[in-house]
Design a binder for these strands. Sequence first.
DNA 1: GAAAAATCTTGACAGTGTAAAGTTTCTTGC
DNA 2: GCAAGAAACTTTACACTGTCAAGATTTTTC
Lengths: 191, 191
Amino acid sequence: MSDSYHHGNLRQALIDAGIRIINEEGEGRLSLRKVAASCNVSHAAPYAHFKDKEELLDAIKNNVTDRFMSELKDSVKDSSNADEALVNMGKRYVDFFVKNPDYFKFLFSSQNITAHLGSDDENDYPPFLFLKEHYLKYLKEHGLKKTKKEKEIDLLQLWSSVHGLASIACMSGVEVSFDWEKEIPGDILIR
Amino acid sequence: MSDSYHHGNLRQALIDAGIRIINEEGEGRLSLRKVAASCNVSHAAPYAHFKDKEELLDAIKNNVTDRFMSELKDSVKDSSNADEALVNMGKRYVDFFVKNPDYFKFLFSSQNITAHLGSDDENDYPPFLFLKEHYLKYLKEHGLKKTKKEKEIDLLQLWSSVHGLASIACMSGVEVSFDWEKEIPGDILIR
DNA sequence: GAAAAATCTTGACAGTGTAAAGTTTCTTGC
DNA sequence: GCAAGAAACTTTACACTGTCAAGATTTTTC
């Protein structure tokens, strides 16, 4: 691997550079050419790895979503039951974006996630699937029987709460840093 | 007002054209030059009315927010009590963005709204102030006494629910069109 | 009715995304 | 081990973008 012409791992380098630029300057100031330059590569080099700018942006989104998912998974590690897991997950869901508001704007600036309340779909937005998984665990632990429609509404309400909280925290000046365990007990997340 | 050189009401025309373009092609495809051209005016003409592109975008946001507010106000007109008003408002809050998903992406694509849960601030995001107003009316009607902190959490939870629902509806493929009165009773909005 | 201000045009510049054609390196099949 | 082709990268080019400066035209002000 001579280090002159071929970069070696340009694809990942472009993604990393993109993330850094978004963190430092925001998505609005990210350009393909700037990303390329920051990898010491010509302005058209990215086209060997991505069809267009959007495809690079999608790759970055997947990368950020992976980090988000690993934090969510981490948050439920030391939960002794499903109630606790759901609260911990909600807490981390919001905290992640409060800590990185630019990620929220970036991830949800366009319709690029899919989710199905009723049917199962492996391709759904992973954080949503994770939430669903633990919600179902919650139902099982409590021996609750609910209709399909009831479950859908619960899930939507659950997701809306944390996602809305994250959105408001990132998009407005509102501070949402309070003691979750005390202020927002589990029974507000699940009616 | 000779109609050759001076437009007459270019400022508003630019805002209207901008809204039309956002609706038809999305914010990403809106350019100052396109807006100017669609008003039959040279590409630099907008600079007589707006400092830069962002200032035009802000004006458009205010305009869209005005429409949103007038729908919210309209939604509570025929409510016989505060409970009903809150449900109707929440319903309309979501419906407005479900009907115009591009408006949601546009309005909340950057941190451009402010809100204060505790203190009063006339400059807060009008829809938020409207929600707060009716929440306080709700407390009064039911003779409920709550601490400052409790009120803040209620408000945040209330706002998060509807805003999160709108966000998920606009950003994912999830359909959120169900019968609000039946599926999401008032007591889920206020714990 | 002249001076000043507001509005709009023209021309220019650097930065953008992306396509086409050419160059260099790597991989593959024999 | 080597030719052929694929992959990765550069160079060149073009249309489009936001913004600025200088000038033209109209309206307002006194």
